[in-house]
Computed example of a mutant assay.
Amino acid sequence: MSQAGVLLDRDGTIIVDSGYVGSVDRVEFIDGAIEAIGSLNRAGIPVAVVTNQAGVARGHYAIEDVEQVHKHMIAELANRGAHVDLWLFCPYHPDGSVASFARASWDRKPAPGMALAAADALDLDLAASWVIGDRDSDIGLARAVGATPLFLGPGGTTEPDVPRFPDLAAAVAHVLSVRRENGARQHIEPPKFPARQFDRADSYGGAYVAELSRAFDTVDLSRVHAAAELLTDAYLRDGAVFACGNGGSASIANHLQCDHVKGVRNGTGLLARVQSLSTNMELFSAIANDIGYEHVFSYQLESIARPGDVLIAVSSSGRSPNIVRAVDWANANGMRTIALTGFEGGDTRARANVPIHVDSRNYGIIEDAHQALMHLLAQYVRQSQLSADAVAGQVF
Rank of each mutant, 00 (worst) to 15 (best):
F165A: 08
V47S: 03
A226N: 09
I45Y: 03
R26C: 10
E367Y: 09
D125C: 01
V56T: 07
R26H: 13
N322V: 10
S285Q: 10
A392V: 04
A210N: 12
A330N: 01
H295V: 03
A305D: 05
S137D: 07
V395Q: 15
G156M: 06
P190L: 05
R135G: 06
G59E: 10
E159K: 03
G5W: 11
G153E: 02
A195G: 12
A147T: 06
E229G: 11
L141R: 02
G113D: 03
V354F: 03
W130R: 05
V224F: 05
P160K: 13
A99R: 12
R214M: 11
E367T: 05
D309C: 09
L256G: 04
I365R: 06
E76W: 02
V209K: 12
V395K: 15
D85V: 02
A250R: 08
S2Y: 02
T13R: 09
P307V: 12
I34Y: 00
A332K: 00
Q379T: 14
S2D: 00
A62Y: 07
W106D: 03
I252Q: 11
R306S: 14
S2G: 00
M1F: 12
N322E: 13
A48L: 09
G342D: 02
D161P: 00
N280L: 13
G342E: 11
V358Y: 00
G32W: 06
I37A: 06
G96C: 05
E211R: 13
V6T: 08
A330K: 00
H72D: 04
P194R: 07
Y92E: 00
P149S: 06
D217V: 01
V261N: 01
Q379S: 14
L122V: 00
A170M: 05
V178D: 11
R361D: 14
L212S: 04
Q383K: 13
V354T: 06
F89W: 11
G38S: 03
L152D: 04
I132W: 04
G206T: 10
R103W: 05
A111S: 12
S276H: 02
T158K: 15
Y61R: 09
S129H: 01
V274S: 03
G12I: 07
M281P: 03
Q257H: 01
A57C: 10
A288N: 09
A33H: 05
R200E: 14
Y20T: 07
L141G: 01
D120N: 12
V327N: 01
K71T: 13
M335N: 03
G22Q: 12
